[in-house]
Design a protein around this nucleic acid. Structure first.
Lengths: 227, 227
DNA sequence: CAAAAGCAAGAGCACTGCTCTCTAAAGTTG
DNA sequence: CAACTTTAGAGAGCAGTGCTCTTGCTTTTG
């Protein structure tokens, strides 16, 4: 049985998340303040602490929210491709991530930028949503591998690294060859490296070439994955 | 003619930078406070504003400081290799960057993490030091190219991207083939992507495999560069 | 219907960046 | 060398922050 009070509480939590998301987008994570959210909510600051234990707790809420939206964006883009179109799926994921990141730079920064000091996202809440994109990537690479569509690597993995990758795959709860895992991690790391450099402005202010450079990087990543 | 007052002023500025650097390492950029620096300096907070216009101004000081130390570390590592040892030089730069980043995560985050909101590093002061590592990379790749040590790419650059890369090289003030520029940028982006993921904890808390994974990524990057 | 639990308000603490005015010392100049 | 100017630092103060605690009030529950 759901009481009106529970419903109101949930609604308030949703409102807080929404206002936090807006503040994140406009003023950024550092300037995000629970007092200002309280003002927008038409309530005194201490009232917000009934719903959110601390500012860090609020950040966790927003981290999960952002991971989920990013994951959903990437998954939606990937779903539009045929299962056998491995290259298309990889490109879809990559562009899904990049488009979301460019549209939501502050929220992207919250996920992949500097860790907020003295705050570490509680693993039990954030790892799940945070793994959606990586899972998508290993899915694509593994499908290609199973279909025999991957070019063989010039050099095989070292024994130690193969063991490491087996452990990572195990941690993800999937059955994968170490080679697939290693290639996926390279794709993952390089993809987000490219997106981060673009979002964080490392290429300089005039990023007129950034989209073409991203395409190029994507081609290089795909080549290294073996696609 | 340098007056004692000028000397004292310079010394105070050095002290402020040192204390800022320490605070950055201990509490991070977000928690960095000029009041606390004033306390450590044994002076009242308003006095610090005689030397530093604002907190952002202090951040700029620390950004330049960090870029210079990172650049120096990478250059020192690279200098230890013979000029013709292109692979060794690339690896030296990469490990120089990684080692510094792992030793100074907060300062690395200041340079390559989320941009501090409402603060953008003034280009005229930061671009120079910020380009030291990229310049090092293009130097290595170009040397290899000139020496004919680079494997030819499977697919040539598109016309548009070649033009973009020519523009970038021009902006750097160096004479480079677009292919060299593109490969350097891929190396740069992927290298820092790998380092950022490691420093920012995206691989999870137990990074037991992180060094071996980095070596693997480095091999993949080198392969894609053509080394 | 009375007890328990949940809610918002308001005051207050310790902190922040930053500005202002004031005093005293140091440097410069006629 | 005395008068003037520049400068470092102190201290008060403003507006903002995260967060806690108490105090009434309302809703839910036994």
């Amino acid at each position: 049985m759901v009481t009106p009070r529970q419903r109101a509480r949930e609604q308030t939590l949703v409102d807080i998340t929404r206002l936090g998301r807006e503040q994140l987008a406009t003023v950024g994570a550092a300037q995000l303040s629970v007092r200002s959210i309280a003002r927008d909510l038409g309530v005194v600051s201490s009232a917000v602490y009934r719903y959110v234990k601390s500012r860090d707790d609020l950040l966790t809420l927003l981290v999960v929210d952002a991971y989920d939206e990013l994951g959903e964006a990437a998954e939606a883009a990937e779903r539009r491709r045929r299962r056998a179109d491995h290259m298309g799926r990889l490109r879809a994921v990559a562009h899904g991530v990049r488009d979301w990141a460019l549209a939501e730079p502050a929220r992207y920064a919250l996920l992949f930028g500097s860790p907020v000091p003295d705050y570490e996202a509680p693993a039990e809440q954030t790892t799940g949503p945070g793994l959606r994109v990586p899972m998508l990537l290993v899915g694509v690479v593994d499908d290609a591998w199973q279909a025999g569509a991957l070019v063989d690597p010039a050099t095989p993995l070292s024994k130690a690294l193969a063991k490491d990758m087996a452990g990572v795959a195990d941690g993800l709860g999937v059955e994968l060859s170490p080679a697939v895992m290693a290639r996926s991690m390279f794709a993952w790391t390089s993809l987000f490296g490219a997106v981060s450099f673009e979002v964080f402005g490392q290429y300089g202010r005039d990023a007129s070439y950034s989209r073409r450079l991203f395409e190029h990087h994507l081609d290089r990543i795909a080549a290294e994955v073996g696609l």
